[in-house]
């Protein structure tokens, strides 16, 4: 049976990493997922900035996004770790505090919007494992990925999921896809994204470089993540560190892209040739031809 979701794209995927969005839109029908766009959604807003700067602004804007999903009548599908954190926690705040919900709805009322707490917020990993099922994923699987060794960048937010279940879900999906996961020993270290908001140089030196070194030492063929923030900063780090003569050549994929490859989509169909970091070595390893 097809399951429907209110799709929350966030900021970075549609604007900076459209190949991830294209992958999602390609794989969804194969996995019997119907995606309903949340027309007029805005930034979630980004927790590392807006929640710290002004909690009320963070909550009002989150509530507006939640109200859009509720008007559609479907649970929210988030494809960004940061968006999941914001919308999940904002929803928890609102449904557990009637007075707060009333106050926030008084702000939404002039916009003809209301949030009652009828819908839930789900992470992509949660939807694949709990709603779609790993068996369905396996049944849809077409292209062997067994030659690929991946380093996983879970991202800090996944460790905030109940009992860290999203971390296990990530592993379960990779296991179903048949890829080899390398243990590089720095999985729990932050990528540097929050630090990059203060200083990109410090983030690269103190966080990203450390992780990239470890991934390279573990001989990973690529890095895979579900976090567009991690993707962005680790990609920038690889590109900018080249100025210092440090070269990693570690292709980076969103999990949705890796799944699309496993489901038989060609690299060009999902935009692997549109990455700022070349993915040729990965494509060659998979035997799918160059870009």
């Amino acid at each position: 049976m097809t399951k429907s979701y209110a799709l929350f794209l966030g900021c970075y995927i549609p604007s900076m990493q459209p190949f991830a969005e294209a992958s999602l839109r390609r794989i969804a029908p194969r996995l019997k997922m119907k995606l309903i766009d949340m027309e007029g959604a805005t930034c979630c807003p980004v927790p590392e900035i807006v929640r710290l700067a002004n909690h009320d602004a963070w909550l009002y804007v989150s509530a507006r996004n939640l109200a859009l999903a509720e008007a559609i009548g479907k649970d929210v599908l988030t494809v960004c770790n940061g968006c999941w954190e914001t919308l999940y926690e904002a929803r928890e705040n609102l449904v557990n505090d009637t007075q707060l919900l009333t106050e926030v709805n008084s702000r939404l009322a002039p916009l003809n919007k209301e949030f009652e707490g009828k819908i839930k917020v789900k992470h992509f990993l949660e939807v694949i494992v709990e709603d779609i099922g790993l068996k369905s994923l396996k049944d849809a699987f077409k292209q062997s990925l067994s030659k690929v060794k991946v380093a996983v960048q879970y991202g800090c937010k996944l460790y905030k999921s109940p009992n860290e279940k999203f971390v296990s879900y990530f592993d379960d999906i990779l296991d179903t896809l048949g890829v080899k996961v390398v243990d590089y020993g720095a999985e729990k270290i932050c990528c540097g994204f929050p630090l990059s908001l203060y200083s990109l140089d410090e983030a690269m030196e103190e966080r990203s470089k450390f992780k990239l070194d470890k991934m390279q030492e573990a001989k990973a063929d690529c890095m895979v993540t579900t976090c567009p923030g991690c993707f962005d900063v680790l990609e920038k780090a690889q590109l900018l560190l080249r100025r210092e003569g440090i070269r990693y050549d570690l292709p980076m994929l969103n999990l949705m892209e890796l799944m699309a490859l496993g489901l038989g989509f060609k690299p060009q169909e999902i935009g692997l040739d549109k990455h700022r970091l070349k993915t040729d070595s990965l494509i060659a390893k998979l035997g799918l031809g160059g870009n």
Partner: peptide, 30 residues
């Protein structure tokens, strides 16, 4: 080129959505 809408169906496309966000933020000292 990837076959998805040139403008995502978010505030990137809908100016009224951005205006609504601005109104909400104006309710705070941010």
């Amino acid at each position: 080129t990837l076959g998805i809408n040139r403008k995502p169906p978010t505030a990137y496309k809908h100016e009224d959505a951005r205006e609504e966000l601005e109104k909400l933020v104006k309710d705070t000292d941010l």
